[in-house]
């Protein structure tokens, strides 16, 4: 540590310039791949919003944002995102709290971990099927509630295939995602902090009020943002569940891509994709700021 690092590094660089260059070559395949299949598609997606059907530059595609329907779908996407993120984060945090009392190498904890990582990925067609089987019009739950208790959950129409129908299926992957992201944070709370606060005369509530919650707040808010982004960007579940109409932004992009709405639609998809990327960018920047703040307590 005390020795100046300069000369040794320098001589190494001079002795092995060729080797140094060769080791850069190792990064080449990955770099090329990322450029071709992440860089280019992103640029194409954004760029397609700025050209018209003939390929010349235009800002005319942005006129879709004059359409109140588009703003409404952005609103609905955000609302679903916010709602499922809030409920998912609170319930997921409760599960994490309960899991801190379970042995970390026991079978219960292990199966909970496995279940959370499978279910956090469980979206799309199969999730839609699961909820159609659970609470569809023919499901045993609906029939039982109606015939035994006289409660018809679809008294005002079958809302499972509408916007509100997305909430429960989304929670099915949001809560597990919260467990995965928040559990490491809550496990980093030091037992010593409880002891020292108890030594100073704090009770359990005061410990949470002045130490536990403030320390966990950035991680919790970060996870909340991650959940929002997860819901905001998810397409497959909604696509499988909602076959008519385009109530959220990803479904508007579907409609534009498969040309339901008329001319020059591929470019409309580009403009909508840009809108989504902008929302996601804001969310991710806030997320990284919060994570930096959360890192303060970990060392």
């Amino acid at each position: 540590m005390a020795a100046p690092p300069g000369p040794t590094e320098y001589s190494k660089e001079r002795w092995f310039p060729l080797k140094r260059k060769l080791s850069w070559l190792g990064l080449l395949p990955f770099t090329l791949y990322i450029l071709a299949f992440l860089g280019v598609p992103t640029l194409l997606a954004i760029g397609s919003g700025f050209v018209d059907a003939d390929g010349s530059f235009t800002l005319g595609n942005f006129s879709v944002y004059e359409n109140p329907v588009i703003w409404k779908t952005f609103g609905s996407s955000s609302l679903i995102g916010l709602l499922t993120a809030l409920i998912g984060a609170v319930l997921g945090a409760l599960v994490c709290w309960a899991l801190t009392g379970v042995r970390s190498d026991g079978p219960l904890r292990r199966s909970m971990d496995a279940a959370a990582s499978v279910l956090a990925q469980f979206g799309g067609v199969m999730l839609a099927f699961a909820f159609i089987a659970t609470m569809g019009a023919q499901s045993i739950l609906r029939v039982w509630l109606r015939d035994t208790w006289g409660i018809d959950i679809y008294g005002e129409g079958v809302w499972l295939y509408q916007l509100p129908g997305l909430i429960l299926p989304y929670l099915y992957f949001q809560i597990p995602l919260m467990v995965i992201t928040f559990l490491p944070a809550i496990e980093r709370l030091r037992p010593q902090w409880v002891e020292s606060s108890a030594t100073l005369g704090a009770n359990r509530w005061q410990y949470w009020r002045h130490i536990g919650f403030p320390v966990l707040a950035p991680s919790f808010l970060g996870a909340l943002l991650l959940l929002f982004a997860n819901s905001f960007s998810s397409y497959a579940t909604a696509a499988a569940l909602i076959s008519q109409g385009a109530q959220i932004v990803p479904l508007q992009i579907r409609a534009a891509l498969i040309g339901e709405t008329g001319a020059s639609v591929a470019n409309t998809a580009g403009v909508l994709a840009l809108g989504m990327i902008l929302v996601m960018a804001v969310v991710m920047v806030l997320y990284s700021l919060l994570m930096r703040r959360a890192a303060r307590w970990q060392q």
Binding site: T42, L44, A229, S233, S234, L257, A273
Partner: peptide, 15 residues
């Protein structure tokens, strides 16, 4: 993760 798959698809289509 930050660029949703549904947005990437718009760019994948021409590729």
């Amino acid at each position: 993760i930050a660029i949703p798959a549904i947005a990437l698809v718009v760019g994948f289509a021409p590729i």
